[in-house]
Computed example of a mutant assay.
Amino acid sequence: MTLTLVPGQATLETLEAIWRGTGPIRLDESARAGIEAAAKLVRDAAAGDAAIYGVNTGFGKLASVKIAAKDTAKLQRNLILSHCCGVGQALDQATTRLMMALKLLSLGRGASGVAWETVRLLEDMLAAGVMPVVPDQGSVGASGDLAPLAHMAAAMLGEGRATHDGEELPAAEALKRAGLTPIVLGPKEGLALINGTQFSTACALVGLFGAWANARASIVTAALSTDAIMGSTAPLVDAIHTLRGHPGQIDVARAQTALMAGSEIRESHREGDTRVQDPYCIR
């Protein structure tokens, strides 16, 4: 089943499904008009005489160097290749997939100036299971995830390495096996692909998803432990927790109450139990 993303409306549940899933991902067609309008704006600017940073000028200390219109595509390609400087182990494929989906959502807002064909290649790579090999350490300065995203973008150019069907290959070969063609970057497209924090955001989300899983497991473990020692559910009374006013505490108490509702073990010692309270580790 294809998962359709609407920029600005993706929920955490959707992002977790992307991380855990393997199906095709597409941007909603409504994003196309904005993407194409921004791409035209950038193309027109690149063809003009006004200096526009990163479009027809160099980068950083070379910002004052004007780039000829015929060289703007080469400028973007060189930007990507020069930032492929990551080191360390390859990012796992599930997190790489999430990173690519986050980049799709960012580009889909129609403010990056990339061509629709560039967006389509990202979608097609996700659908075909072509995952760029992205080293998990290193970036450049404070401009975001420049190095990791450069490795992602390089694969779209047929450079660097990627995996397909579980096999690591030169990116050009991986794309070829999937029936895909590398792109040639237009004005500003390299800059648009590597500016952002999709690598960091993907890694943070994976940590969040794991924390949620641990929290859910801890609630179930607490309910099982309380039942196993024939413990009391009195500390879970809603009034205690609403008085404190902490939403998380209230939710956890209600969840544990629901898990223990109807327990035969709990009912078996509700009357006649001489204990005043449960052990401290349970309470």
Rank of each mutant, 00 (worst) to 15 (best):
G186E: 09
V65Y: 14
V134F: 07
W19E: 15
H83I: 15
L224N: 02
G141A: 06
V134P: 06
G58N: 13
G262D: 09
R216Q: 10
L41D: 15
L3M: 14
M1D: 12
F209E: 05
A202L: 00
G88L: 13
A45W: 13
T181V: 09
L105Y: 02
L208E: 04
T257R: 02
A63C: 15
Y53L: 13
S263F: 01
T226I: 00
C203W: 02
S143P: 04
K40S: 11
N78S: 15
T95M: 00
R109E: 05
D278R: 04
G60D: 12
G210R: 12
L149D: 02
G166E: 12
E123L: 05
L75Y: 10
L236W: 00
S112A: 07
M100R: 04
I80S: 09
D273H: 08
M1A: 11
Q9Y: 01
A63D: 14
T95F: 03
S106C: 09
L105E: 01
Q89N: 08
A68M: 12
I18M: 11
H269S: 14
E36N: 12
A37G: 10
G8A: 01
A228S: 01
H269I: 14
C281K: 15
A239L: 03
A154M: 08
G8Q: 00
G248W: 02
D71K: 08
E36H: 10
M125H: 05
G48H: 14
D273S: 05
T163A: 13
V65Q: 14
C203N: 06
G141K: 07
A155I: 11
H83V: 14
R109L: 04
T197H: 02
S139R: 07
N56R: 10
G108D: 08
A222W: 00
A215D: 01
G179Q: 15
E123A: 05
A172Y: 03
K74E: 15
L107Y: 02
C84G: 11
D92K: 07
L15I: 11
R97P: 03
M152P: 02
A192M: 12
Q9K: 02
T2V: 14
T4F: 11
V65A: 14
F209R: 03
N214G: 14
K66H: 15
P24F: 07
E168C: 07
